[in-house]
Amino acid sequence: MRKALVPVDGSAAAHRAVRHVVALANIYPSIEAVLLNVQPAVDTWSVRRVLKKEEVEAIEESHGGDILLTDRQILKAAGIACTPVVEIGPPAETIARVARESGCDAIIMGTRGLGAVSSVVLGSVSSRVLHLSDLPVTLIK
């Protein structure tokens, strides 16, 4: 494995996925990570009335960069090359597209625990990524 896409949303499961990449560095010392935060597109009339599209996107990108900060530091401390990416759009589709465009070998992403709500969460993004991507997808609980 040369390069892994790691979607990060600030959740504990996403942080565990980053820690998994650090563990993989023992097996694949030259592993690289593409840290991706996907921000939802804000298209409500109340926001668009006050802010221009470019201003909303700048705020979303700034927020996404803040979410990536802690995980970037973890990877840097482990000596793992990291490319931070913030995108705006539908999460699963964006994850699959960025993995493909970035030349990643795999996607490593967190999930929620397997409780009553998890099937909804797992079904919404993780499962969709499994269906959309031809790459191996590792789900970290």
Rank of each mutant, 00 (worst) to 15 (best):
Q73A: 11
T70Q: 14
V42T: 01
D43I: 04
S62D: 13
L69M: 13
D43W: 07
P40S: 07
E57T: 05
E60W: 13
D66T: 14
S46H: 09
E61L: 14
I59S: 14
V38E: 00
A58F: 08
T70H: 12
G65S: 10
E61I: 13
T44M: 06
I59F: 15
P40C: 06
Q39W: 03
L69D: 13
E61K: 15
Q73P: 07
L35D: 03
L36T: 03
L51D: 00
V42H: 04
D71G: 02
H63V: 15
A41Q: 09
N37A: 00
I59H: 15
I67K: 04
I67T: 03
V38C: 01
L51S: 02
K53H: 11
V50I: 15
L36F: 03
D71L: 02
W45Q: 10
W45L: 10
Q73S: 13
L35P: 03
Q39T: 00
L68Y: 03
E57R: 06
T44A: 02
Q39D: 00
R48W: 01
E61Q: 14
L35S: 04
P40A: 05
L51C: 02
G65T: 07
S46Q: 10
Q39N: 05
Q73M: 12
I67P: 05
T70L: 14
E60T: 13
P40Y: 06
H63Y: 15
A41S: 06
G64Q: 07
T44R: 08
E61M: 14
N37T: 04
L36Y: 04
L69F: 12
V42D: 01
N37V: 00
I67R: 00
L35G: 05
W45D: 08
I67F: 06
L68C: 05
R48Q: 10
G65W: 00
H63M: 12
A58P: 09
R48F: 02
P40E: 06
K52S: 10
L35Y: 04
Q39S: 07
V38F: 07
I59R: 14
L68K: 02
G64R: 00
E55P: 08
T70P: 15
D66F: 13
A41P: 01
L69P: 04
E61A: 14
R72Y: 01
G65M: 05
V38L: 03
K53L: 08
V42P: 01
E60D: 14
G64L: 02
E55H: 10
V56H: 08
V50F: 15
Q39C: 04
K53S: 09
K53A: 09
R48Y: 01
V42W: 04
T70R: 11
Q39K: 05
T44W: 06
T44Y: 07
V56C: 02
D71M: 03
E57W: 03
L68F: 05
E61Y: 13
D66G: 13
E54W: 01
Q39G: 01
G65Y: 01
K52L: 09
T70E: 14
I59E: 12
L51N: 02
P40D: 07
E54Y: 06
Q73L: 13
V38T: 00
I67M: 07
E54G: 07
E55V: 06
